[in-house]
């Protein structure tokens, strides 16, 4: 009775929700990559590792210091963001005059170091992180049961993405940022401390990845490899959307998550590769990406 396109409705909506959640992570991560790339001209290959650090920071805060989920949601991004700022000051800032590819290689090296250290410390198997009491349980939506936490993740991700978009598009700080993206030297001539802005931007992008990690901790098990496979999909998302537009990367992220979820229903074997196939098609039809400037 509850069949849609020959698929039981709960299965369809369940996968749609999973897709939406994956999409939320794609959106948050590609947004962070786009913000960093916009100002620093660097593809942050360590983004997945920093997402993983966010999840581990939440786990450590809970298990070592007894600090719960809500505080971790604020503290973990700050901690990881500060490590990002240190990395930018110590290493990344030395490369701005060189080819972009060196930034990619450097951050790839940093990602290897971070992942390796966590693998040594915590092993490869996942660590559990309990869903906070306020968000456990499920809503009965009539056609399906929706776990409260999953709904929260989608809403929180949407709020974060929109807030970032507002900051960048509608505030004075955002205006400086966009101006520096266009012409850093000129903005500096107006008395804006561009190097500090670059450092803080990197810290912000990294913190955004870390929030994603905290949100992901109760859904996926917390493990050192949780970021590296995700980030490759996010790169495909970024190629599809183009990094020129903030709103574009948010939309592309959510949309591709949903497409992936639907593929799981109709053709499960293809679900791991569907985003890469879409990337290939987009490259053939619109090489600059859906929202990219050529």
């Amino acid at each position: 009775m509850d069949d849609l396109f020959g698929i039981p409705a709960p299965l369809l909506f369940g996968q749609l929700l999973l897709g939406l959640i994956n999409g939320a992570f794609y959106a948050m991560l590609s947004l962070g990559l786009a913000v960093i790339f916009g100002l620093l001209n660097i593809v942050n290959m360590a983004h997945g590792a920093q997402f993983m650090m966010g999840a581990f920071a939440a786990w450590m805060l809970l298990n070592w210091l007894g600090i719960g989920y809500w505080a971790a949601l604020l503290l973990a991004p700050i901690i990881v963001g500060i490590t990002g700022i240190i990395l930018e000051k110590a290493f990344i800032s030395r490369l701005y005059k060189l080819d972009h590819l060196y930034g990619l290689l450097l951050t790839f090296g940093l990602a290897l170091i971070i992942e390796g250290v966590f693998r040594n410390e915590f092993g490869s198997s996942g660590l559990p992180y309990r869903i906070p009491a306020e968000l456990s349980g499920a809503w009965d939506l009539g056609f399906m049961f929706m776990p409260v936490y999953r709904g929260w993740v989608v809403i929180a991700a949407l709020i974060l993405c929109l807030a970032t978009w507002l900051i960048i598009e509608k505030t004075r700080l955002g205006a400086y940022l966009r101006a520096a993206t266009e012409n850093a030297a000129l903005v500096q001539a107006f008395g804006v401390n561009v190097p500090r802005m670059v450092t803080l931007t990197y810290g912000f992008g990294v913190a955004l990845a870390a929030v994603g990690g905290v949100l992901a901790a109760p859904i996926y098990s917390v493990n050192p490899q949780m970021g590296s496979n995700l980030i490759i999909v996010v790169f495909a998302v970024v190629v599809i959307g183009g990094m020129g537009s903030i709103l574009g990367s948010i939309l592309t992220g959510f949309a591709l998550g949903i497409v992936e979820g639907l593929t799981k229903v109709f053709w499960p074997e293809a679900s791991a590769t569907v985003i890469f196939v879409i990337m290939a098609i987009v490259l053939l039809a619109r090489p600059a990406g859906l929202f990219g400037r050529a």
Binding site: L98, Y102, L105, L106, F108, G109, L110, L112, G116, N120
Partner: peptide, 21 residues
């Protein structure tokens, strides 16, 4: 040495890019 190999490779990456291009 297990996962330390990954760490060492990462360190070599960073050193090469920063000082040893």
């Amino acid at each position: 040495m297990g996962a330390w190999v990954t760490v060492i490779q990462g360190v070599i990456f960073v050193l090469c890019v920063l000082a040893f291009r």
